[in-house]
Nucleic acid binder design. Structure first.
Lengths: 119, 119
DNA sequence: ATAGAACCTGACATGGATGTTAGGTTCAAG
DNA sequence: CTTGAACCTAACATCCATGTCAGGTTCTAT
């Protein structure tokens, strides 16, 4: 599929998709004229990339990580090096405390909302 | 307490604390010479502010929200207006999906970590 | 053949919390 | 009184994914 369709199916802007390619996160074939041509699996990958960005990982970490991810269609292409495992473990712990923070904030919001509705 | 102590006790930079004041999130008394003087409760408040920033709320929303929060030392000073409740509900839903995304990303990391360690 | 939609590259802009620096004032301890 | 730590304001810098614009090329349907 081409970039417009991928953009609309993932709700990610074309600008961002080109940026992902620049960062080595998302490969694309090219038509003879130079237009990008994506495989069906690009949809899942873009969603995954967005989630990882949202989790606070930078492009470089995501680029390291992606080849090690177990795709829907098979096992991982690579195995994480010990150094990468160490970094990813730190990221995982950071994500865990992010989740805890978010949960606390959500509880605060719920309390304020409930209080307001109860009066 | 003064700004240096508050900064070290909350692990938030003095720069940020002054910024919070500018945004109307954190009030401070002043010494005759103009130095900021914070009450003990500022520590909790700063932590709360950081959590809300981490949850993706901007300064303005936090400023609206803070007066409605049930403090440790009593009930909320204000009750949220219907409009604010609507906004906060949207924020809460957004936070919920953030948590879901983060959980997914953490699962991905765990899988990569486990796979690497298992070999 | 041709119009118009879709795509290309490249460059500059944005946001918003935070870092940093500069130059000056206040505070506290000797 | 003096000295150094701590604080003040103001202004500018940074990060980095994303937005936006300009000017040009490719694709597709008629």
């Amino acid at each position: 599929m081409r970039i417009g369709e991928l953009a609309s199916r993932t709700a990610v802007s074309e600008r961002s998709l080109r940026y992902y390619e620049q960062q080595g996160l998302l490969a694309a074939e090219r038509t003879p004229g130079g237009h990008r041509e994506y495989p069906e699996s690009a949809v899942d990958r873009v969603v995954r990339i967005q989630e990882l960005y949202a989790a606070g990982l930078c492009s470089a970490k995501i680029a390291d990580l992606l080849p090690c991810i177990r795709d829907t269609d098979g096992g991982p292409a690579e195995t994480a090096t010990p150094m990468l495992v160490e970094q990813l473990t730190a990221e995982r712990d950071r994500i865990t405390s992010m989740i805890d923070d978010l949960t606390r904030s959500r509880d605060v919001l719920d309390d304020v909302i409930t209080t307001a509705k109860g009066e």
